[in-house]
Design a binder for these strands. Structure first.
Length: 111
DNA sequence: CTTATGACTTTCA
DNA sequence: CTGAAAGCCATAA
């Protein structure tokens, strides 16, 4: 599979880029804001493609799963890197077990 | 056209 | 709280 950028995910990319520093959004949230509710899986997939092509332009590390944890990828490398970047931005995993408090760091589009 | 796969979510036990 | 199963859908071959 290895998705490529040439899809309608441009909207998703825009949403991810809109996530302010120090905040995190869930896949479902990004999907909904991108006009594709329920496509959380595809969002994650699109982000995978991003990490490959536009990692330098899109803050993919600010997107996490509904539990407030970093999604499990095939390898563990990116996972650690993502956590490090989030902490560097001010997102602390205060809930323990590598969990982020979405009530505190969760992105609210209305804000 | 069909088959395979995947950074998810939700529900039920 | 944890764990398993089903659902969903785009992209690639």
């Amino acid at each position: 599979m290895g998705a490529r950028q040439g899809a309608g995910w441009q909207r998703v990319y825009a949403v991810v880029c809109a996530i302010p520093a120090g905040r995190v959004a869930t896949y479902a949230q990004v999907a909904a804001l991108a006009g594709r509710p329920g496509h959380a899986r595809q969002v994650g997939y699109a982000l995978f493609a991003l990490a490959r092509d536009r990692a330098d332009e899109v803050p993919w590390h600010r997107v996490i799963n509904a539990r407030g944890e970093i999604s499990r990828r095939s390898d563990r490398g990116p996972e650690d890197l993502q956590r490090a970047m989030l902490e560097a931005e001010g997102v602390h995993f205060s809930l323990g077990h590598g969990r982020v408090d979405l009530k505190r760091f969760g992105w609210r589009p209305e804000s």
